[in-house]
Design a protein around this nucleic acid. Sequence first.
RNA 1: GCCCUUGUAGCUCAGUCGGUAGAGCACCACCAUGGUAAGGUGGGGGUCGCCGGUUCAAAUCCGGCCGAGGGCUCCA
Length: 593
Amino acid sequence: MDEAGKAFSICRRDIMADEAKLEKIRHSMAHVMAEAVLEIFPDAQIAIGPAIDNGFYYDFDLPRSLNEQDLEDITARMKAIIRSNKEFKRSVISRDEAKEMFKDQKYKLELIDAIDEGSEISIYNQGGFTDLCRGPHVESTKELNADAFKLLSVAGAYWRGKETNPMLQRIYGTAWLNPKDLRLYLDHLADIEKRDHRKLGKELDLFSLHEEAGPGLVYWHPRGARIRQAIENFWREEHYKNGYEMIYTPHVGKSWLWETSGHLGFYKESMYPKMEMDNMDYYVKPMNCPFHIMIYQNSKKSYRDLPCRWAELGTVYRYEKAGALHGLMRVRGFTQDDAHIFCTPDQMDAEIMEVLRFSLYMLHSFGFDDIHAYISTKPEKSVGEQEKWDAATEALKRAVEKEGISYDVDEGGGAFYGPKIDLKIKDAIGREWQLSTVQFDFNLPERFKLTFVDKDGSEKRPYMIHRALLGSIERFFGVLIEHYAGAFPPWLSPDQVAVIPVAESANDYACGIEKRLRLDGFRAKSDLSSDRMNAKIRKAQQMKIPYMLIIGEKEMENGTVSVRYRNGKQDNGLTYEEFASALKAKIDSKEQL
RNA sequence: GCCCUUGUAGCUCAGUCGGUAGAGCACCACCAUGGUAAGGUGGGGGUCGCCGGUUCAAAUCCGGCCGAGGGCUCCA
């Protein structure tokens, strides 16, 4: 974790104790903001203003759009209100009194009507402003710090979140106990911006998207492809080690396949439209499952053949809504690190345990240690017998408990075809991302009438488990870029070593070193441009290359290399062998530099 | 879909009151041969997102369209 991330999470920990107080502060800030806005726009209609994570907002119906200058004016007025030491006074009033008091505020009247007959109606007054409010609030604006809040943005928001309702203007703000905490939070926001994978993807020349060639479709540049290769090679090796087989399946399939699987029934909106050929309809695959099933069905299966663990880096296409697309995180074409496990009911428990253990191992390998599980159980509308659901859900719970990871249960939150576990990791600055998913599927084995012949000669239905460890390679790559802020550990770095000759006279020696590194399996590039050495170092540094070998007169004379690390440290006068073995050890360990 | 912001060179951005475009980086050429984060000089490159309107004149003003970013799910 880097400094900003560390500072912010320490600050977060301290804050936990003050959570209740902060909520009062934030909620009170919202009221102060409403007062300030009403000073500027006396006819404003005010809606709601709750405390939220890290801050607060308030929704207004205003005669015109707010701009930057307005935020400054509102901020200045808020500071004045805070400094005037107003008390927050709570009182309980009757429904009629409330209606009279807010007779010019149509949104408030709606809210009053929504309050249960039995419950009391309370208002809070802070001098110049009275709001219909359940509370709680601070005692007085004395408890608010005029230098510990900041208005962040204005956004459109529908009244009560409904598209058919009028669009209000929502002002978001952040508020803290003291200016130092505010500073930490603002630094954290700046850090998030610096880590943005879309920005780093451009700066580090990793990938691009081309709206004119199709939105949501990813182009992997050579440097991004290097990282993808490193991920995929590791992924394949580990899958073989863990008892999986690799398969490859087609990218399109006839409508028969999608009708049988049911996708044309319940998933059609997310599928690219049909391609007609010889009076038959083909569809690009949005999922790999039906194809894996075709292989399963290719021959009669015995209990002796199970479990089948078949993995594929399968590229699928889904028509995500335009507004939902976001860099690498939400795309229309992506590669799932997919696998399907077909097993007997007896094997199911052990398979689930193993899948979870394997998932955790993979996530740890990529530097993710803070992992939380979410188990989703049977929803109201579902397929499959109750006993199967129970057995599968229990197996999922046993597995997370055995691995000792914390988990939440989302009752009724599963897909209609089976229960699942999702694993969420926390990245270097504490943000959660969902990566792994392990899902039971009681639907497809039924639809495709999958069977295996059991010991007693009878045909039985196998369990089918669908799992992805990294989720999608694109999304995982996006998360990795943000997690490492572009400074990948050596095993993933697109260029591991930059060989930098001090002057042209060292070019040949540098080329020799580069060639030797390449032959030894390292990703090395020498910089033979006419730039000065300083500029070459700067460029390598900007591309976040972990190792720079500086080659000049001294090194040529002694037959050595001088190493400059990405973090600015330096090791001079190493032999090639010393450097290469240290580099290899670092790569094998998958450690960060 | 709706609200706000936004679209100028490959990238990051400037362009005042309307007078048909600029900088830095990158790229190319030449000079410089330099020891730990930018050496110098010169050059090429833009139908200012698209369509229409106002005007003698539009990157700039007006209207429409398209794209991108943030938000619309924290509930008196």
